[in-house]
Computed example of a mutant assay.
Amino acid sequence: MAQFTYTESDFNENTCNWQQTECQQSKFDETLQSGWDKAVEDGHFRYKLDIEETRVIGSKKYIAQLNVKRAQERRKPDVIESVNQPFNPASFNFLKIKPQEILLELVKEEDDSRPNNQVNQTQENGTDKQEVKKRNLVVINVSPLEYGHVLLVPDIDACQPQVLTESSMRVSLEMMLLSKHRGFRIGFNSLCAFASVNHAHLHAYYLDRELFVESVPVKHICGDLYELDAMPAKGFAFQLHKTGVDKLSKIIFHIADYFQKHEVAHNMYMIRGPVFNEDQHSTNRTIRVYLWPRKKFIGSMWLKDEEAFNVALVELAGHLPVKVKEMFYDLDEEKIESTIRDAALEDSEYNSIKQDVSNICQSFIS
């Protein structure tokens, strides 16, 4: 396992837009992609990624991709009964994966230049204290939905259940900033929102196509909080622009923590795009983060018989990996949006949550 060491000088907030033809990759992109390609060559995936066909559907330009093997050959998901289901060491978790599935460890160099060893010695009240260093690992998703599909497993040894923490938000934003690729995306499924493993992790992958949510207008609510209401499922929107990694991590964590405490299933998606409410082709670009509260899905069924896709983080953003060939060709915008609306909260519940989220946002306004 290689270490990928970085500092804030390696961050890239402003990437090229979809009209530009010459776009550079970062050292991080090159490292991730070369490691992923080698894992494919060495046969460490359950199947070779084979997107049979891609369709662009409707006015919102939903990107539907036929990926039958993901449904047929992926690991059976855990049975999930609660957003707050405890971590179970007997169930599958990322400490049980093969060493060959680990691509790299993300290591941020701090200003104090302490050595990046696994255990640091610190002095407290005249006695030695063992400070265990967190390992933030990037591992391949052995059942990929797109090119470069990996999992970011923050602080893997803590064995946290599938929850968003402030530190996991921070490292995922930093991972996003390490990429220069306009199609690099990161997302999170809570339990009961189609997370299939109850061990804290986020998804990351490349989709070399523009999505509607990259430039969709959003409505300002208060402070750094905006609302996405142009999609079938309403949600909350944030941007890194003029907010910063630390503050944005805190805000999103506090809202996600509210969801956890109230058993509200949720999905999160990070994407590159123009600064809010600027032109689609603006060169003033940033990272957008969308956070959707949604209906809970209970159980272990991976694909409902009556649906072409399950509604998780990528689907809410308009990227639709479809696992049933017959349904793929029958999809239209009305069917897509009906499926997504079925996963959305009723207006009364959403509006109640919106008021509470607004109150949380108010607490960050200085």
Rank of each mutant, 00 (worst) to 15 (best):
T7A: 03
S9W: 00
S26V: 10
L32Y: 03
V40D: 04
H44I: 05
F45V: 02
K48H: 11
E53M: 08
S59K: 15
K60D: 06
A71S: 13
R74H: 11
I80A: 02
P86N: 10
N88I: 08
N88E: 12
K96Q: 15
Q100T: 09
E101Y: 10
E109A: 11
E109I: 09
E110F: 13
N116L: 12
T122P: 00
E124Y: 13
G126I: 10
G126K: 13
D128S: 14
K129E: 09
Q130H: 04
E131F: 10
N136Q: 06
L137P: 00
L145P: 02
E146G: 02
H149D: 07
L152H: 07
A158Q: 12
Q162V: 06
T165A: 04
V171Q: 01
L177V: 02
F184V: 05
R185H: 14
G187N: 10
S190E: 03
A195Y: 01
A195K: 01
Y205D: 08
L211W: 09
V218K: 08
V218N: 07
K219D: 12
E227L: 10
A230C: 06
M231E: 05
K234E: 11
Q239K: 10
K242D: 14
T243L: 02
G244N: 10
V245F: 07
E263D: 15
Y269Q: 04
F276L: 08
N277D: 11
E278G: 03
S282F: 03
Y290D: 08
P293Y: 08
R294A: 03
R294L: 11
W302A: 14
L303N: 13
E307A: 06
V311W: 02
L316H: 15
A317R: 01
V322L: 01
V322K: 04
V322D: 02
D330R: 14
E333Y: 09
E349C: 03
N351G: 00
S352M: 13
I353V: 14
F364G: 05
